[in-house]
Design a protein around this nucleic acid. Structure first.
Length: 681
DNA sequence: ACGGCTTAAACC
DNA sequence: TGGTTTAAG
């Protein structure tokens, strides 16, 4: 649901940059011979040539479209061939039996790292970015206002200016130049003019450095910029002067507005008879609030007037990672072991991406979530939602696999309700899984001392993980897969060996590639159980971490359960504390990828840490081995609140220090300070 | 029971 | 909180 925010007082310059048929461009850069040809990217799918996920503009001219009948049905590869026989179909890369979007993700990062240089930047999706160019535009207006420009770039002159009446006969670009340069413009228009020039420059730079074209919208807020970026594609830019807003919105179909493309928009149409944004103007704010609540009501009232105070968030990196796959119709998963196989694949991909994130961006995720969709045929009320489940995220492929599977089983029991325990071999008719996904969220920056933490991870990675009682716990016994999976089983890192009749499958640890698990907490003792016990696994999620059920359904309690429920991020710090940096901190962090210009971005916002604590921080700097004053406020803000509080108290002990000086942090169980080195060593 | 696969955010 | 729902690309 949208939330109303007041418009900021001063005029902003906001741009929305949208890559043109991005996946196609990425593939065309990889295969330049495809350039200029009608091209589409299709997702791996045997059925009817796969589904189109991106279509080049040449192909669109031949009638290849993403939407048919105005509804959501996307064209299949076969239909595209029929409509445009010469179309080039490129397949999305496949890894571990599923679509692999990493190529596009990193291409998107290339673009972001360029666009992030000139102002606050928000990565809105894999191929879209918002920019707040207000500061840059104001500077330009002060230093080199457009009216003083005698030479103007071609890309600037090709801009579209809404509301600019260009008489035929008049030079197309001349009127644009006049508008941009006119001296009697008000400040808002002048700022937008600067925005036009800045964005044209940025787009040229993106093209030069990545070979990708993009389109852009320039306006006073995100909503209008987004609207504008789609108005002239590909490779063009459109500006929305303040004076053009009303006319633009008056005839705009309500569903074209961002956030109104779904049910809310439909409700406006059917319940209020609103078809265009202009129609909304008739309704008072309170009327809208009556229908849609305070927040949404106010938001609607505002957007009808082109008002949207939503800020560009300075965020260049995603807030979560997910890996999922659907198993439609006949491909639905029917056995636990098949589910486990796919969870293993998905977890592998997720783990890989988490590793990259840690390496490149120095971030750690702390929550693992499992989503699934399912249906129950043979039963009445066949449609019940399959619950999502989450638990603390532990790094390491096999740990994620294990935890994901445990989460699934917990969810499955809840889904099946009392009629849950009915293993009867491997094939059952009760449930079918039509979609699986694992995701990692609550990602926090490692404040600093990165390389020593990385060293810690690396040093731990060779140590085999053991349970607390000394039992190697990687041998997971699962119910068998008598149900064949259509796809090839990848034996690269995981061996799932189906045995038709015994009803058991063994999952072996991989001896080829050493287990990269990092045992952040040593008290893990998961004991596996044969298939008939599968349904007896306790419903409590704590089983992931501290206990596991035996055949009897009783838990084996781990004596060291004190850490239960503690966020896994805390474990990281704890272990960091336990094994302090062995060497001096190095500055080799300069090897950060181009996409991690985040720091530069944050430092732009100039949160200089309080100087009042300077000497204190210097001392901490020595103890920690890294520079505390480099911890940015905005980084702090992203931490979980209780950790935030502790961390702040730690950084600023003057403020309301109420702790026993000797045993600092002992009082609170969730104290992160407890896990940091003592101030005086 | 499908366009597939992702991400974000509001709500309770 | 975690889990659900909505929306978007």
């Amino acid at each position: 649901m949208p939330v109303a925010r007041p418009e900021t007082s001063d005029a902003r310059v906001i741009a929305h940059v949208d890559m043109d048929c991005f996946y196609v461009q990425v593939e065309q850069r990889k295969q330049p011979e495809l350039r200029g040809l009608p091209t589409a990217v299709v997702q791996y799918n045997e059925w009817q040539g796969g589904g189109l996920i991106a279509v080049s503009y040449e192909a669109r001219k031949c009638g290849v479209k993403r939407v048919l009948d105005g509804v959501f049905r996307s064209m299949r590869g076969d239909e595209a061939k029929a409509a445009c026989p010469e179309i080039q179909l490129v397949q999305v890369p496949v890894a571990r039996g599923k679509a692999d979007l990493n190529l596009y993700r990193s291409a998107g990062s290339e673009v972001v790292s360029i666009l992030a240089q000139s102002g606050k930047c928000e990565r809105a999706s894999i191929d879209e970015v918002y920019l707040d160019l207000t500061d840059a535009a104001e500077s330009m207006l002060a230093d080199a206002p457009p009216e003083s420009l005698e030479l103007m770039d071609e890309e600037v002159l090709k801009s579209h200016i809404l509301g600019l009446s260009r008489k035929d006969g008049d030079d197309f670009e001349e009127s644009v130049r006049d508008w941009i340069c006119r001296k009697d413009a008000d400040r808002r228009d002048k700022l937008l003019s600067c925005g036009i020039i800045l964005v044209a420059e940025l787009r040229k730079q993106v093209l030069k450095e990545t070979e990708f074209t993009c389109s852009a919208g320039i306006a006073h807020n995100k909503m209008l910029a987004k609207l504008a970026s789609g108005m002239n594609k590909p490779a063009q830019q459109t500006v929305v002067p303040y004076a053009a807003v009303q006319e633009l919105l008056s005839s705009l179909p309500i569903k074209k507005m961002k956030q109104l493309g779904g049910k809310l928009g439909t409700s406006l149409q059917t319940d209020l008879g609103v078809d265009t944004v202009g129609d909304l103007l008739q309704f008072s704010e309170t009327k809208l609030q009556e229908h849609y609540g305070i927040n949404t009501g106010t938001w609607l009232w505002n957007i009808a007037r082109g008002i949207s105070g939503e800020e560009v968030q300075g965020r260049l990196l995603p807030k979560s990672h997910g890996s999922g796959k659907t198993f439609p119709g006949p491909r639905a998963l029917k056995s636990l072991s098949n589910v486990q196989h796919w969870l293993n694949q998905l977890s592998e991909e997720l783990s890989e991406r988490l590793s990259s994130d840690l390496e490149q961006n120095k971030r750690i995720a702390s929550t693992l979530t499992l989503h699934a969709s399912a249906f129950r045929s043979r039963d009445s009320d066949s449609h019940k939602k399959f619950p999502s489940k989450s638990c603390p995220l532990r790094y390491g492929v096999t740990k994620i696999q294990e935890d994901a599977f445990n989460l699934f089983q917990a969810a499955l029991r809840e889904y099946m309700g009392p009629f849950g325990s009915k293993p009867q071999g491997n094939k059952q008719e009760t449930w079918r899984i039509t979609g699986l996904s694992v995701s990692a969220s609550k990602i926090v920056d490692i404040p600093s001392g990165t390389s020593s933490i990385m060293r810690y991870f690396q040093s731990q990675s060779t140590v085999p993980s053991r349970s607390a009682d000394g039992c190697v716990q990687d041998h997971v016994v699962t119910p068998s897969a008598s149900e064949g999976c259509s796809e090839q089983i990848s034996t690269e890192t995981q061996a799932v060996i189906p045995e038709e009749d015994t009803g058991v499958t063994y999952t072996f640890p991989n001896f080829e590639t050493p287990d990269k698990d990092v045992d952040l907490v040593s008290e893990k003792d998961v004991v596996s159980c044969p298939s008939s016990e599968a349904t007896d696994v306790p419903t409590q999620l704590e089983s992931n971490r501290t206990s596991q059920t035996k055949r009897t359904g009783r838990k084996i309690n781990n004596p060291k359960e004190k850490n239960r429920g503690m966020p896994s991020i805390v474990d990281i710090f704890k272990n960091y504390n336990a094994s302090p940096p062995t060497k001096q901190e190095t500055q080799e962090d300069s090897t950060v990828s181009p996409s991690t210009s985040k720091r530069a971005n944050f430092s732009n916002s100039s949160h200089s840490s309080e100087v009042t604590q300077e000497s204190e921080e210097r001392r901490q700097q020595i103890d920690w081995g890294y520079k505390i004053d480099e911890i940015d406020q905005s980084v702090l803000n992203e931490l979980p609140v209780e950790i935030q509080r502790e961390l702040r108290r730690f950084l600023h002990p003057n403020k309301r220090l109420n702790t026993n000086s000797k045993s600092k942090g002992d009082g609170s169980t969730s104290s992160i300070a407890h896990y940091f080195p003592p101030l005086n060593r």
